[in-house]
């Protein structure tokens, strides 16, 4: 008998009383001001949120960020910002090792934990979410920034469809570690800084 069949058989041999799935209906938390709450939580985990009306405003904010102003290799997958790396032409993701700054699209944000949802539908190399020294996300929300922010994770999963071959992730703030004596250090392996822009355009 294969290991597979042995394991399944040994599980089926156990007498386990049937338990129903509880369902996920609940009075889950909502926030009066999702934008403000998202910004507070993101700040607490080391990131920053901005609500802007035009791409110029994004450029204005970024140009004050030294990491962007001094970046020599910038990947931008948002038409509003110009980068200097031809991302689509790159075949081997290892070539992205020295990217200083990336500006990437994110689908939506979650107020309760300061996360944005990203996937690789529009991104050829998923490593671009992890390898740049600094990261900015742009979330499009034409009318109101709050439209692009859900209150909690239950609503977040209602917005995502999983099951197709794809990579997706919630990203909340820059990469961090506290493995040395519980001292928080920002910039463990991934991004050293993270800005989220809600673009009302």
């Amino acid at each position: 008998m294969s290991s597979r069949d042995q394991i399944l058989k040994s599980i089926r041999n156990q007498v386990v009383a049937s338990v129903d799935h509880p369902g996920l209906a609940g009075d889950w938390i909502r926030y009066d001001d999702r934008v403000a709450h998202f910004a507070t939580v993101l700040a607490a985990v080391g990131g920053a949120a901005h609500v802007v009306d035009t791409a110029e405003e994004i450029v204005a904010v970024l140009s004050k960020v030294p990491a962007f102003a001094q970046a020599s290799k910038i990947v931008s997958l948002c038409e509003q910002i110009s980068g200097n790396v031809d991302f689509v032409a790159i075949d081997d993701p290892h070539a992205l090792e020295d990217v200083d700054f990336a500006v990437l699209p994110a689908q939506f944000a979650v107020a309760e934990n300061g996360a944005v949802w990203v996937d690789d539908a529009v991104v050829k190399h998923r490593v671009i979410y992890f390898i740049p020294q600094h990261l900015s996300f742009i979330v499009r929300s034409p009318a109101d920034a709050a439209d692009a922010i859900v209150d909690n994770m239950h609503l977040a999963y209602e917005r995502i469809s999983l099951g197709e071959p794809q990579f997706g992730a919630f990203v909340s703030g820059p990469s961090k570690t506290a493995d040395i004596e519980q001292s928080l250090v920002i910039g463990a392996h991934g991004a050293r800084s993270l800005n989220v822009f809600f673009l009302r355009q």
Binding site: L24, F130, N152, Q166, F167, G168, A169, S172
Partner: peptide, 29 residues
């Protein structure tokens, strides 16, 4: 997949007192 909402809300809060881990990556294929 929707069950993840419950677990991702609990995991990092219980583990290190963060609202969620920095990266929660979903690999499909």
């Amino acid at each position: 997949a929707s069950d993840l909402s419950v677990f991702l809300r609990l995991l990092a809060r219980s583990a290190t007192g963060q609202p969620i881990t920095t990266y929660s990556s979903h690999f499909h294929g």
